Computed example of a mutant assay.
Amino acid sequence: MSTLRLIPGTPDAVLSALSEVLDGSGAPFAPVPEDAVGAARVHQAAAPDEPLEDDCAVVLTTSGSSGEPKGVLLSRDALISSAVATHDRLGGPGQWLLPMKPYFVGGLQILTRSLVAGTTPVPVGDSFTAAARRLTGDRRYTAMVPTQLARYLETDLEALRSFDAIIIGGASTPEPLKRRAREAGVTAIPAYGMTETGSGCVYDGVPLDGTSIDLDGGRILIKGSTLFSGYRLRPELTADVLRDGWFRTQDRGEFVDGRLRVVGRVDDVVISGGVNVTLTTVQARLLEHPRVKDAVVLGAPDAEWGTRVIAFVVGEPARDEVRDWVSETLPRTWAPQDVVQLEALPMLASGKVDRQRLLENAR
C-alpha cells in the first residue's frame, strides 16, 4: 500500500501533483482547501496517517452538503478515462479555463483534461472576462456550477459566448437558467455526475463513451471506466454502493426520449401531514416564479407534520404568495408550511447549496 500526501489545494500545486500521478512518478495525494473547515474535513475523510488502499491516485473529499464528508478514491485510469471521454464528446481537446476550486472534482478534472490535452489551464482571478482573453487554444472550454453561470450571464456575457462549450455541473441546472443561456447564445451543456464518477459522466442526458446508465426502481445506476475505486477506509459503505460493477447513486431519474432526466434524490420525497411531497418538484415550480431569483425546498423534522416543508427563497414573494403559486399547478398539500426569504443562498466552496446551514438557521 502507498502513503498519502497532503498538498495545498491551489491550482499550481494540484496541477504539479496531478502531473506526477498521471505519469507514474509521484505518490497519491489529497488536495487541502485554504479554509480551516475544509482542511479539517479533508483530514477527517482522507486519514493521511493510515495506510492507503490500492488503485488510488487522488483522494477527494465530498462536499458534505447533505451529510458526512467522505474520502473518494480515484484511480489514474478513471481520471484519464473521464478526460478522454469528455474531449471526445466535445469535439476534440482544447484549452480550459479554471473558475472552480481544484480540490473538488469539477476543478480537478479541468486540470486533468488540460494535462491529457497538453494545454495550459488558465485560472480565473478577479475577472472572468480577463481570464478568458488569456486563452490561446483553437478550442476553448470551461466548466462551472449553475450559480456561476447565472452570475456570469449578468456580468460576463460576451466572454461566455466565446467558449466552444461550457460544462455545467455540481448541481441540477434549473430550466429557466438553461433557457437564459440558450437565448443568450451561450453553449452551456448540463452534465450529471459526482466525485464518485470522476466528474460529469452524462452530458445533456447522454452518457459519455464508456459509461452505462440503468435504473433500479427509479434509482440511477452507473457503470463505466470513470468510476471511483471506493471510499477511504469505508469498506462497508463501498460494498453498499458498488455492486457488480454498478454504482448505486442517491439520485432518482427517468428516461425521456432516450435521455436521462434526473428528477431528484432518493430522499427528496418526504411525508408531510400524511402526504408524500416531492421537494424537487416544489422547488422547480418556485423557480418559475418571475420574482424568484433562486430557491431551495427542504424538509425538517416536525412534531405536528412529521416533516415540515420549508422553502428558502431569494426574491420578493412572501409566504402566502409562495403557497398560492405552488398550489396553482401542484396539490395544495404540497405548498410549503414555512417560507424563509434570503438575500442569497449559503453556498459551499464546491458551489453547492449548504443545506445543513439552511436547516440549522431555520430551527
Rank of each mutant, 00 (worst) to 15 (best):
Y231V: 10
D267Y: 00
I271E: 15
S272R: 01
L233C: 03
W246Y: 09
T197G: 13
R232Y: 08
G217C: 11
G198R: 01
V241I: 13
G198L: 03
L221E: 14
V241Y: 00
D209L: 09
S225G: 05
D257M: 05
R232D: 07
Y203C: 11
L233M: 09
T249A: 04
T197Y: 06
I213Y: 02
V269K: 00
L227Q: 03
R219I: 09
G230C: 11
Y203T: 10
L233P: 00
T197N: 12
D257G: 11
L237F: 01
V270F: 04
D268T: 03
P235S: 12
R261C: 10
V202G: 06
G258T: 06
C201Y: 02
R243M: 07
G245C: 08
G273S: 03
G224T: 07
C201Q: 09
R219W: 00
R261Y: 05
V269Y: 00
G273H: 02
R232H: 09
R219K: 08
V202M: 07
D240P: 05
I271S: 15
V241P: 14
F247L: 15
V256G: 06
D251S: 07
E196P: 12
T195R: 03
T197D: 10
L221K: 05
V262M: 03
K223D: 13
D257K: 02
G264P: 11
S272V: 03
Q250W: 07
S199D: 15
G198W: 00
T197M: 11
T195K: 00
G198N: 04
D209Y: 04
L237T: 13
G253Y: 01
R219Y: 00
D251W: 01
L237N: 13
S199V: 07
L215N: 11
R219D: 12
R259E: 15
